[in-house]
Amino acid sequence: MSRYAAMFERLNGTGAFGAFLMLGDPDLQTSARLLDAVVEGGADMIEVGIPFSDPVADGPVIQAAAQRALSSGVRVGDCFDLIAAFRARHPDVPVGILTYANIVVARVGFMRDAAEAGADSLLIADVPSLEAEPYALEMKQAAIEPVLIAAANTPESALKRIASMSEAYTYCVSRAGITGTHAGGQFDSGLVQRLNAAGAPPPVFGFGISTPNHVRAALATGARGVICGSAIVDLARSGGDVAAFVRALKDATRERVVTAMD
């Protein structure tokens, strides 16, 4: 059983809390410490960015995080090393990579290296389901689970493609736009229902999650989890208590049990 599947089973219907961090932000040592801090705070799954110079799906907070990592000289190999070290410390926590297509295609054997480091999934922000098939195949051959994005405006035909190609979870975009620029999203229960009907992997909401109320609203749609990114990255940048922040959001996931009937 994959680490994601085991995690969802372990959670037994309560929502998964995913924490996003940019690898190497602001440097390798701090980054390793932050990965531990979000687990200490109760994160069920970790999403890690591999920095790209031109992240068009990201708002100012994540852009700046990528820039800090690149400015400190972080390379893709360093990111895999961070993941491998994290994996050694936390054998069961699912780790998903979020990055951009040019980073993936520039490195021969990217998927294999990701798998060897102990990553579980890969989401390529600028590869929509329309273009995803060869990437998803390569991921599956390397035992990396493909994660695709679905949004409220994603038509049925694309949801079917997403359902057939992706594993791990489905990254639901809670609203139009880029990461982190507006607090709160419109969490669309229609999208969750459509994904479930299409047989897609468990829907998890990202974009616009920064308070316990956002977590509650997102899970009230029947989604199986949430991912918080910009709020954590911003707090880490300002030296705040990341573990405590994650704990408060994670606590909000325990309040409601999602049943198969939802």
């Binding site: 068009v56 600028d126 929509p128 273009e131 679905a150 405006n153 975009v173 139009a176």
Partner: peptide, 22 residues
């Protein structure tokens, strides 16, 4: 898409999913 949008191996539509309908 109604066209394939490729010139040999080049081209395509590498954008976040949310922009595909647009």
């Amino acid at each position: 898409m109604r066209m394939n949008g490729r010139f040999g191996r080049f081209g395509g539509c590498y954008v976040p999913e949310i922009l595909v309908p647009a």
